[in-house]
């Protein structure tokens, strides 16, 4: 009898966590908005503190929300159908992330294939070039903007290539961890997942190294025209996602050490691993379109 009850789709009674999360996002938005204004205008205010309070609330919410869910899952309230809901939800979330990166890749392609050639006078845009910036030469990477800002182009060899190899390997180790979990080989699972998180951390520290190099030695900054803009926003948002993915996988590692997950019930791990493969694919696209081409 009880068994049948548990087969039902689990609908939680009510939960305080979403409203806590709503307050968190509110604080983050207000804080971030004011922080940006204060930073760029040089005025003083509470933006930064509100932002920190928002993130603290968000982290508090995530702990509470996931604690509830882990408890429910471990007490067996979740049916296979619910597991499908979570997996499909995660897949669609990743699709939304793909479209988010798509906006920035779109900006890159448009600037490179259309805006810059037009400014350089291609097609019937000769007058544009003549009237606006007659000395401007269309080029990519845009190392001299129409306005005259100069910078250096980031090469693909060296750090970016090493980072590509690191991230590709991490995707493989992440997959091995997944296989190990499904085969219930916990030792190998811990090892492989640990290596994945470690590789993620190395990737991020090299990325920081690259940014320092770009800013201090190459003069490639967020302000150096659309080449720098697309470079930093694409790699920057990718870096944020790698950081988030690594934190997720690290938490999965902690949970694995606590003995969570079974060979056929490990949605959280699976979601984290999907996310990791996703940031890996984004990096490959990035490496190809931002660095090599």
């Amino acid at each position: 009898m009880a068994q049948q009850e548990y087969e039902k789709y689990y609908v939680p009674d009510s939960s305080p966590w979403p409203i806590v999360g709503a307050v968190a996002l509110f604080l983050i938005a207000v804080g971030a908005g004011n922080f940006v204004i204060e930073q760029t205008k040089g005025t003083s205010g509470y933006g930064g503190y509100i932002l920190i309070a928002g993130f603290a609330t968000l982290i508090f919410m995530l702990f509470g929300w996931f604690r509830n869910q882990i408890h429910e899952s471990m007490t067996g309230l979740y049916s296979a159908q619910l597991g499908r809901s979570y997996r499909q939800g995660m897949a669609w979330f990743i699709f939304s992330e793909v479209m988010f990166f798509g906006a920035f890749f779109g900006a890159l392609f448009y600037a490179r294939m259309i805006a810059i050639p037009w400014l350089g006078g291609s097609g019937n845009n000769g007058a544009t070039n003549e009237v606006l910036w007659p000395t401007f030469q269309a080029m990519w990477p845009l190392i001299e903007t129409p306005g005259g800002t100069k910078t250096e182009a980031m090469g693909w060899y060296g750090l970016p290539l090493i980072n590509t190899v690191i991230l590709l390997i991490s995707s493989v180790t992440c997959h091995f961890a997944h296989v190990a979990l499904e085969e219930n080989k916990r030792g190998r699972l811990k090892l492989m997942l640990g290596i994945t998180v470690l590789l993620g951390a190395i990737f991020m520290s090299l990325q920081v190294e690259e940014y320092i190099h770009a800013y201090q030695e190459m003069g490639l900054t967020l302000q150096s025209g659309v080449y720098g803009n697309t470079f930093f926003l694409l790699t920057g948002f990718h870096g944020l996602h790698v950081t988030l993915g690594a934190i997720i996988l690290f938490i999965m590692l902690l949970r694995i050490f606590k003995g969570h997950f079974t060979p056929d019930d490990h949605f959280a791990f699976q979601a984290g691993s999907w996310y990791w493969h996703f940031v890996d694919v984004v990096w490959v696209m990035l490496f190809f379109f931002v660095y090599i081409l």
Binding site: V36, I37, Q39, T40, A103, G106, A107, Y110, A111, I114, A115, I116, W118, L119, L132, W133, L142, T145, P146, G147, T149, L222, Q223, S224, G225, V226, Y227, G228, N229, L233
Partner: peptide, 22 residues
Amino acid sequence: KFFGTSFFDAAGGGDPVMFQHI
């Protein structure tokens, strides 16, 4: 607006029309 990028500013190689496309 706040961080000096020029996605939509032709002086930096961007394009205000690109905003409209996106």
